[in-house]
């Protein structure tokens, strides 16, 4: 009979190779075993995700957007297979509420979708507003869902004006203290000064950095002199001998 360790190792190995159909067949096989379905999620799939998240710590050479999306999608669809087998009341309580979307005129879904998968796997309740979202819609969703966070991404530099509008509206509606404002996407990765310019609190270059900031933010504030990792890479360029 299959043991949880075997499930964990095999699922990780299949996911690493991005074998979607094989992964789902293997989960179906595991559901026939004695392993409790909840354990397949918490000790099998969630552990695999954690391992992948840690990949991003090794730098951009170790992981690509496709790899992250693939593992996220495999995990999400595997959990969907397991869900009907869970006993009622065993679902973990969702943590904080996050409003997520790309800003108006931006149709780049990839980063947002990867992030959504990983946030949900980490038990955050995600309100996904989708693509091309006007600034006011973010504010409306924050108020309606009593959200703790708003995450906005863009791939296009000129769209940061729309993101700044969200920053301005958060101030106008006195939501700044209550809602933590994260921004992401290429313009912020290559020019970290933009984070402050749009009135955001934070930006993160990858999933691990984001999770550390999200979970860490409840415990302690980031050190004042701490620079984001992309910035460190740029600094490193100038410090070379």
């Amino acid at each position: 009979m299959m043991k949880i360790q075997e499930f964990k190792d095999t699922f990780y190995s299949i996911a690493l190779k991005r074998k979607y159909n094989e992964a789902l067949s293997f989960v179906e096989e595991a559901l026939e075993s004695d392993i409790p379905p909840q354990k397949l999620i918490t000790e099998g799939i969630a552990e695999t995700l954690k391992q992948f998240q840690s990949f991003t710590d090794e730098g951009y050479e170790a992981v690509s957007a496709f790899q992250l999306l693939a593992i996220g999608k495999i995990a999400e669809d595997s959990i969907e297979l397991i869900k009907p087998h869970l006993e009622k009341g065993t679902n973990a309580e969702k943590k904080d509420v996050i409003v997520l979307g790309t800003i108006e005129s931006d149709f780049h879904a990839l980063g947002k979708n990867i992030l959504k998968l990983f946030l949900e796997m980490n038990d955050f309740q995600v309100i996904d507003l989708g693509l091309d979202v006007p600034p006011k819609e973010f504010i409306k969703a924050i108020q309606e869902n009593n959200a703790n966070y708003v995450f906005i991404s863009t791939m296009m530099l000129h769209n940061i004006l729309g993101i700044k509008r969200v920053g301005d509206l958060l101030k106008q509606k006195n939501l700044k203290e209550k809602v933590k404002f994260f921004v992401g996407g290429a313009p912020f990765n290559y020019n970290y000064g933009l984070v402050e310019k749009v009135g955001a609190d934070e930006s993160a270059e990858n999933v691990t950095e984001l999770m550390n900031k999200l979970i860490g933010s409840k415990k302690e504030k980031p050190k004042e002199n701490e620079k984001p990792s992309r910035f460190k890479k740029i600094l490193r360029f100038f410090r070379r001998k």
Binding site: Y20, N21, A65, L69, K73, H108
Partner: peptide, 10 residues
């Protein structure tokens, strides 16, 4: 892009 990557995967 998400749909294209999902197609690559699936």
């Amino acid at each position: 892009s998400s749909e294209w990557f999902e197609a690559l995967l699936m």
